[in-house]
Structures are given as structure tokens and as C-alpha cells.
């Protein structure tokens, strides 16, 4: 059974239908790349998965459990959303690190608050902090930024900031990590280092959805590719299928650019 099942997801903004029924599956440990021209609804899809938007129709299941069903008010209640959002992580195009916190604090803040909320923090605050900082340091070591733990976001390059943002999302151990054009705010050299981190995560078995304009990345570093156009999945399949023998004319002209 697929780890993530998305069925018939629809989203309107006023009159405009931005997602017109999106369905796909994603297996555990696989990487899905989503490509498509701008305005096709890629960001909106990720935002629906991360509950920054609530889909108007359709459902989302993780591990066979229906965590969101537009027709079921119980799954749309703030409490349910709060609980279920831990299934997903999101890395933004513009990093969105917290400027007043150091790199390590950026990583531990949310985890700390979450632990406090569940009462864990009361038991032993100091121990908890140490544990989270250690976890944070392990992640920073993995992305090669251990020496920047005390730096503030403004002191880092865009590529470094994005790597920190990735680590920050990983701190909460999401089942599925989503990336919304993680490199489109970066120049080529920095793009490389971020994509390198994402590839490392793939090798480590993370399940990921990556919206990207980096065709090379989609081709070489994903198990599955979806091409979106005007709010629908125009074509999907393995990278070989989509890039080797694209069927739809829209995809063909998209790849020509």
C-alpha cells in the first residue's frame, strides 16, 4: 500500500478553480518530482497537503488512514489538522527562517514547543533541551553546517539558509517532506549544494515531494514525476517515461523550452 494517497483534490480561490481533481500515490522511501509551468497549481497542491490551504474536495490518506476528507468536518477541525500536520513537512522557496534565532535555535524551537505542549517539557526541561540540541547538531552535521550552529540566518548564504530550513523541517521527523521550488531563489552554484542535500536525503530513504524547475534533478533524482498543467495532472510516470517519451503535446512543448 502506498504511504500517501491523494484522491480528487480540488481547490478554488473564489471563481478560479486552481486544482481540478488531483489524484496520485506515493510509496514510502520514494521521491516524487512535480513539474509544470508557473500558475499550474503546484504550490497550491503542496499547501493543501500541509494544510496551509484546506482543499474544497477530495481526501488525503497517509498509511491508509484518512487524515483529511473535505466532506468530513471532523478531519477539518483545527484540532485534527494540528495533530495530522506532523505527517508533512514543508520547505519554502524563500526559506522563512526565524531571523532572531540562531541556526540551532531555529531547529529546536518548534520541537521544544511541541514537547512542552505534550507535557514532556515539565518533566525535565534541561534534559529535553540537551536532547533536542543533540538531534539538531546531528542534522547540522549531515548538511555540513555544524560550524554555523550559532550563526544567525542573515549571516548565511541563500544555499546555507535553505539547508538549515531543510534541517528545521526534518527535526519534526515528518513522514513526507515537501519542497516548493527549493532552489529557485538561488544561483546555480548554491542550487547545487541544496540539491545535493536533497539527494542525500533520498539516499537515506526519506519520502519526498519536490516541486522543481530543475529538469536534471527531476530526471535523475526522482522515482516518479508528475507534470501539472492548469490544475490537472497532465501526465505522470517514471522519469524515463516522462522525459524519454512524453505523450501529451503540452508536456512535449513544456520540455522543449
Amino acid at each position: 500500500m502506498a504511504l500517501l494517497e491523494v484522491r480528487e483534490l480540488k481547490k478554488n480561490f473564489g471563481e478560479t478553480e486552481v486544482l481540478k481533481g488531483i489524484s496520485f500515490d506515493l510509496n514510502a522511501n520514494e521521491v516524487l518530482s512535480i513539474i509544470g509551468s508557473s500558475g499550474s497549481g503546484k504550490t497550491t497542491l503542496l499547501r493543501c497537503l500541509n494544510f496551509l490551504e484546506h482543499a474544497d474536495h477530495g481526501c488525503i490518506s497517509v498509511d491508509g488512514k484518512r487524515i483529511y476528507d473535505a466532506a468530513d468536518p471532523a478531519t477539518r477541525a483545527p484540532k485534527a489538522i494540528h495533530k495530522n500536520r506532523t505527517n508533512f513537512g514543508l520547505v519554502f522557496q524563500s526559506f522563512n527562517l526565524f531571523p532572531q534565532y540562531s541556526v540551532l535555535e531555529n531547529l529546536t524551537l518548534a520541537a521544544m514547543l511541541k514537547a512542552k505542549e505534550s507535557g514532556e517539557g515539565k518533566i525535565n526541561k534541561k534534559e529535553l533541551k540537551e536532547k533536542l540540541e543533540q538531534q539538531g547538531m546531528e542534522l547540522l552535521t549531515r548538511i555540513g553546517l555544524a560550524d554555523k550552529k550559532d550563526a544567525y540566518p542573515c549571516m548565511l548564504s541563500g544555499g546555507q539558509q535553505q539547508r538549515v530550513a531543510i534541517a528545521r523541517a526534518l527535526m519534526l521527523t515528518p513522514r513526507i517532506l515537501c519542497f516548493d521550488e527549493p532552489t529557485s531563489a538561488l544561483d546555480p552554484e548554491l542550487t547545487k549544494e541544496v540539491l545535493h542535500v536533497i539527494k542525500d536525503l533520498r539516499a537515506a530513504g526519506n519520502t519526498m515531494i519536490v516541486v522543481t524547475h530543475e529538469m536534471e534533478f527531476a530526471k535523475n533524482a526522482s522515482d516518479k514525476v508528475i507534470f501539472m498543467s492548469k490544475g490537472v495532472i497532465e501526465e505522470s510516470g517514471t522519469p524515463e517515461e516522462l522525459f524519454g517519451s512524453p505523450k501529451s503535446p503540452v508536456l512535449r512543448s513544456f520540455l522543449m523550452q
Binding site: N50, F51, L52, H82, R85, T86, F88, G89, L90, F92, S94, N96, L97, F98, L109, A110, L113, K114, R168, A169, L172
Partner: peptide, 10 residues
């Protein structure tokens, strides 16, 4: 983005 980052971090 600051609000949204907080939101997705739970």
C-alpha cells in the same frame, strides 16, 4: 512566510 513557517512547524 513567517506565519506559515510557524504553522507548518506545528
Amino acid at each position: 512566510g513567517q506565519y506559515e513557517a510557524c504553522e507548518v512547524l506545528g
